[in-house]
Nucleic acid binder design. Sequence first.
DNA 1: GCAAGGACGTA
DNA 2: GTACGTCCTTGCA
Length: 972
Amino acid sequence: MHLLLVDGSGYIFRAFHALPPLSRKSDGLPVGCVQGFCNMLFKLTQDMDGDEAPTHMAVIFDAKGKTFRDDIYPDYKAQRPPAPEELVPQFPLTRSATRAFSIPSIEMEGWEADDIMATYAVMARQAGMKVTIASSDKDLMQLVEPDGSIRLLDTIPRPGQPPLRWIGPDEVMTKFGVSPDKVIDVQALCGDSVDNVPGVPGIGVKTAAELINAYGDLETLLSRAEEIKQPARRQKLIDNAELARISKRLVTLEQKVPVEIGLDGLVRQPMRPSALFPFLKAMEFATITKRLATLLEANPDDFEADPELKAGGSTDVGAPQKSTSLSVAKAKLAANATPGTGPARHAAEEHARVKAIPVDYDAYEIVTTPERLAAWVDKIVDTGRVSIDTETTGLDPQMADLVGICLSTAIGEGCYIPVGHALPGDLLGGGGLVEGQLPIRDVLAALKPVLEDASILKIGQNVKYDMEVLERYGIALAPIDDTMLISYALDGPRYNGMDVLADHWLEHKCISFSELAGTGKNQKTFDQLDIAAAARYAAEDADVTLRLWHVLKPRLSAENATTLYETLERPLAPVLARMEARGIMVDRQILARLSGDFAQRAAAFEAEAHELAGQSFNLGSPKQLGEILFDKMGLEGGTKTKTGAWSTGADVLEDLALKGIPLARTIVDWRQLTKLKGTYTDALPTYINPRTGRVHTSYSQASVLTGRLSSNDPNLQNIPVRTEDGRKIRSAFVAPPGKVLISADYSQIELRVLAHIADIQALKDAFEEGLDIHAMTASEMFNVPVEGMPSDVRRRAKAINFGIIYGISAFGLANQLGIERSVAGEYIKTYFERFPGIKDYMDAQRIRVKAEGHVTTLFGRKIQFPNANSGNPSERAFVERASINAPIQGSAADIIRRAMIRMEGELQRAGVDADMLLQVHDELIFEVPEGAEEAAIPVIKRVMEGAAEPAVRLSVPIQVDAHAAKNWDEAH
DNA sequence: GCAAGGACGTA
DNA sequence: GTACGTCCTTGCA
């Protein structure tokens, strides 16, 4: 008989660095260790067949919480850093994997896995069984028996070594220099820095082994310490005898853990396809699924992926918004977020702990020597985690130069490494660097290994910025966590910005940049600041970022936002960083010509307007215009804005124009031209980066309520398209010679999402059949055949469809269509009758937002409405409309995010050379070599159309149209 | 020099 | 009727 014990927790921690990182394809969930673990279980059961085959088996895990060792020595394992972020979701998954393989998964509160394994090993040996412990943990070496009855088996994959390696008495001798029964005596002397076992200071493994071999055991050694010849060693042993005894108790494994399951309960069970395949499918492990299918002679297709574990499964991602799920959602809310239950309590405790630690500016360090820099690098390696912020000469990550880097590895600490502070320059330029700074090359060379180390987490606030800056200095920052994105995943864009986050969560007011550098045109750039003052500001940033991370990160699991963050937020940041870095080419000449054209035509309109008004006035002033139209000319039907000024919006002027006021038309035309000139033809060329010759927008990933991106500096998401003049501007966005642009856009994505979420059969059928959706709507509403339908009928239906998405009101629809409110009300009534389901959906959102303060997208993104129960009726009505729109707009936004996250990898896998440049809500713009568009378009369409899956299986087809051309206007 | 309001470009 | 960002004027400091 043979008992096989697997050290589950040990495997996860040790395999993490040995295995290549692996993400679940459909949503990016890290699963590398889970896969390694499954492979290991498979291998163990395969390789140990015949006489070696285990008859009994269990996987043992560490339970959460304290053990008796914490009572003996409070600092035990105290300095061990929290598990790397990528590991956290894998802990529960390895337990699920164990169960999937039909193996007992054992963990006991108050005991470490090692103690449980020791207990079972001894029990089994006494019962005459052979024991194998699958672990390479040196603490378990004390259990090895010289007769081979208890052995260890190292299963951590290592390149160039066999997958399974035995550890017997010889290997223990190599490691500790003693036989297994003396291992604990050696450990008692040499201690263990990882677990914080003190040992005797100054005594290492070699000396310890020498002493134990000479004196036999620890107690004999301590009682005869006086005899030791070396005076320093003798004194150390005498002084620290008690520390050695405590250390021995810490490292000695308990062999009498009161296990609930006896050896009989560990008898090996055959693997069951019904347990195995739902798990493997949910993890999307194709290879091992295939191998086990062959082994078990089963067909995996007979089984569905475990709904609790699969991407977008119900454990974390919010339940789809069917009205019946309201009570379920409430129950989940209560179960997960009540203070006092595990994760929520932990988050609250962390918050209280971190908030209580005051910020101490004097604790910050300015790093100016190679030694101190090396010390900080060591610190980062030790903790496996660092918060980082880069200070630069400006706000544009594609232009700004690096001035300094700040780091923090522990709350209350921080350092600033100045590298680019400049002496005051003259008109001709800079006056060189301030003395005392380390050379930037040396600093970057020293930091590069840790900043790129896959096992060291880099924490930042708006990390995308730092990634772009550092990329230009040859550093690929990864892996990352972003406090801004964590906050966004939890609370939406409410507390954007580090100062606001610090104020809200830490009740700490950060030094503001303006109090350091001034404001306005005399504002200093960071390189002109005094290093000492800059250091306080900069190191505070790193310190505060780390504090925020400690406060916010635990809330992700407590509030079920981990999947959202890890699949829809964090992986998008590096994608956006690359898009921003690529930029897009803009033809300066086209814009210059247009600008001249627009200027001339605008001037003509201006003269005409002055003529018609009978006086000169500023056409750009709505105030002056209103006074001329409604006071001086005395026109009827003017309305006032909420501030009491005359309303002169385009719709008002359009009305006046129809009533025969030519001035109104002239103003409308003038405004259009000056808008295009001011915002686009004149402004865009100023954004061309001299280094790259291209325009680099900046995407904000965390500022839109619904989960959309926004674009600024410049905004490339509102480049004109609707008018002929506008499209001329769009045609100035071009591909460089030898390349073409591809524009791929989702067709009617929001209406399709609506059809799915609200479960509207008629809409779903129409999309299934590929009908013109607005014409179909018109035909249903107004009983007009689609064939030969008047364009106005279709236009009305289109307005209604959009109205539904926007949370329709009779008032708004009437306004839009220029019809009576009562007529608009009738339209809406008819719509609800023809498309049953819409009204239910809308009511469900209204109820939900009032009851819970938020609504959710298909992918679990919460959209908060803090004033859903406002006393102000118009505010309430506004929230109702927004809460109807938000799941639709937000689900569509989540879908294109998923497409973007997958896109680069899929293009690469397909061997297609294509660069993703821009996103405009439902459209992606790529740049590809001429001739590659034929290959690129099918890949792009496939990724975009399949982006929701497998997290969500939409009940409507998703359609993407893609075209290639030399400029954006023609590609669109 | 700055903030607010109005207007208008996009999905 | 939803969601944004930018430009310009205005009014106040």
